[in-house]
């Protein structure tokens, strides 16, 4: 495919970059990114990737837009309340950039559909709010050998982390299993400052673009934690865990698991700890 004059103008600021150029922009237009969750993280990721000219964006979410989402889920507008999140997101993406092919998956990611869905894409973005889904995404991406950009947000904090299967530490290398049920307050209880979703989501989008274009150093083997209260990033170096049940040399996990519990966060938060 070759670019039209309008497209060349649209992407001119990318094309000007020696690391991207026309060739890189073409790569972006051929890339397929799967965004799990069209919420706080998924919205900014999808919006920036659409603007960047990613060819195909897959969105999966079974929720409808709620008034309480509008504080941070920037693709959903007031008239969208009560409407499907993936449909609402698709409309905004196409209004921004009609070049993007948007695949809508109005369902939940489960052990039954995860691998089939992940397989259709080049890069996966974790924008979900619960640990069972985070583990499911991690496992499915490893099994399908797809790079994953993990994201998490909570109160004033956020976290990003890129996983390249068989090359870098996976989520289970650090967290073996989801936290026990019942000890974890819900998202609604915990709260989140909306802009943190934008900060982490745009980092996730940056990682996706870098991976597609093979630019720089990915956020692998480093967990990047952000605290909005101090406007500080903290990088925690991690490495592949030889006892990882998924990506270690003696894996015990060879099938996807649907964990029962729904969970959003744990206490105390890292900053509660470090700030005393």
């Amino acid at each position: 495919m070759s670019f039209t004059e309008d497209q060349i103008t649209r992407y001119s600021r990318h094309i000007l970059l020696p690391e991207i150029g026309g060739k890189g922009q073409k790569k972006l237009s051929q890339a397929k990114v799967f965004i799990v969750g069209a919420g706080g993280l998924g919205c900014p990721v999808a919006y920036y990737l659409a603007a960047a000219g990613i060819g195909t964006i897959g969105l999966i979410d079974s929720d409808v837009v709620d008034f309480s989402n509008l504080q941070r889920q920037i693709l959903h507008h007031t008239p969208d309340v009560g409407r499907s999140k993936v449909l609402s997101a698709k409309e905004k993406i196409l209004a921004l950039n009609p070049d993007v092919q948007v695949n809508m998956h109005e369902e939940r990611l489960t052990s039954r559909n995860a691998r089939d869905l992940v397989r259709q894409y080049d890069i996966i973005i974790d924008g979900v709010d619960n640990f069972p889904a985070k583990f499911l995404i991690n496992d499915a991406c490893f099994m399908e050998n797809k790079p994953l950009v993990h994201g998490g947000i909570l109160r004033f904090e956020g976290r990003a982390f890129t996983i390249i299967p068989n090359q870098s530490a996976c989520y289970r290398c650090i967290f073996k299993n989801p936290p026990p049920a019942g000890v974890v307050p819900t998202c609604q209880e915990a709260g989140i400052i909306g802009v943190v979703a934008g900060i982490i989501g745009t980092i996730q989008a940056t990682e996706a673009i870098k991976l597609i274009l093979n630019i720089g150093t990915p956020l692998t083997n480093r967990i990047l934690d952000f605290d909005a209260r101090t406007t500080a990033f903290r990088e925690i170096r991690v490495k592949r865990n030889p006892s990882c049940a998924l990506c270690g040399p003696n894996p015990s996990l060879t099938e996807l698991i649907d964990y029962e519990q729904e969970a959003c966060q744990l206490q105390p938060s890292a900053t509660t700890l470090t700030n005393g």
């Binding site: 969750g37 919420g39 706080g40 993280l41 998924g42 929720d63 989402n69 889920q73 974790d126 924008g127 979900v128 709010d129 619960n130 640990f131 985070k134 994201g151 998490g152 947000i153 909570l154 904090e157 956020g158 976290r159 650090i174 967290f175 936290p179 974890v184 998202c187 915990a190 989140i192 979703a197 967990i223 934690d225 925690i236 969970a263 959003c264 966060q265 744990l266 105390p268 938060s269 890292a270 700890l273």
Partner: peptide, 11 residues
């Protein structure tokens, strides 16, 4: 020592 707590969110 580094303590890594679960961080959920997204929605």
């Amino acid at each position: 020592l580094e303590f890594l707590f679960f961080m959920g969110g997204g929605v």
